[in-house]
Design a binder for these strands. Structure first.
Lengths: 121, 121
DNA sequence: CCAGTAGATTGACGGATGTCGATGTGTTCA
DNA sequence: TGAACACATCGACATCCGTCAATCTACTGG
């Protein structure tokens, strides 16, 4: 029903969109329907305290990455629940998962985090 | 079940918390349970495409504020639905509402937006 | 090959959320 | 006062989400 997406000239968001982000900052231009739909899932992934703490634990981990085995106890939830939350963060593109042997290692996706950050600014 | 909140010395987040934000940036320190619970609702408010577009419409409005009457048509949802979404944004502290006569005017809460932004960085 | 372990998946449940029609509240203008 | 308007609230519905016990998958060491 909305035509705003089509009506926004491509040139309007030139350099603002060049840094691998999907959208211009809030004050720069009106967010189109498609961009909003693309952006919302990332914020949805941050909409839970457990996931915010998981992201924080991963971002502050010694070598920039954290083993799943070290994330269950601090969160205080069951292993399946923590695994579920980590999957949500991965699917939203906020963290990367790497399986090494038996263990799964997670590290933040700084590009995606910067994309969200620049949208808010 | 988690004691991490109690174990974090208050002095650890001194100047990082002074700028009206609830939490230090992601890499700075581990997010406590209370901080995570305080921060999550703001991200939850951003977890819907319609609300992202509303926030964008308000932030890009001519005088830095937008009338509710101008927000219904671009969103393409019913008036009660738009009113509901605006309430969610207000309750999350992301925008301010001001009733002037018959109209309701909304403007972004830049402090709150900066708080979220600094958390991501 | 087998036993042990890390972690992902499944199934189920209760509670939260998006949506809209109908209705309520408060303001403006005649 | 009363009609018209802007917006909020209510009630209902379908869907989504967080959580956990149980189970499955895949890797490791013997």
């Amino acid at each position: 029903m909305s035509f705003s997406e089509v009506l926004v000239p491509a040139a309007k968001t030139r350099s603002l969109v060049a840094d691998a982000s999907c959208c211009a900052p809030l004050q720069a231009s009106v967010l189109g329907e498609a961009s909003a739909t693309a952006l919302a899932p990332a914020f949805a992934a941050l909409a839970d305290p457990a996931r915010l703490r998981l992201l924080s634990l991963i971002a502050t981990a010694p070598a920039g990455e954290a083993c799943a085995c070290d994330l269950i106890e601090p969160i205080g939830k069951s292993q399946p629940t923590v695994s579920h939350h980590l999957k949500v963060l991965v699917d939203a593109g906020l963290i990367h998962r790497e399986k090494r042997g038996v263990w799964a290692w997670y590290r933040p996706n700084t590009d995606k985090l910067n994309e969200l950050r620049s949208f808010l600014g």
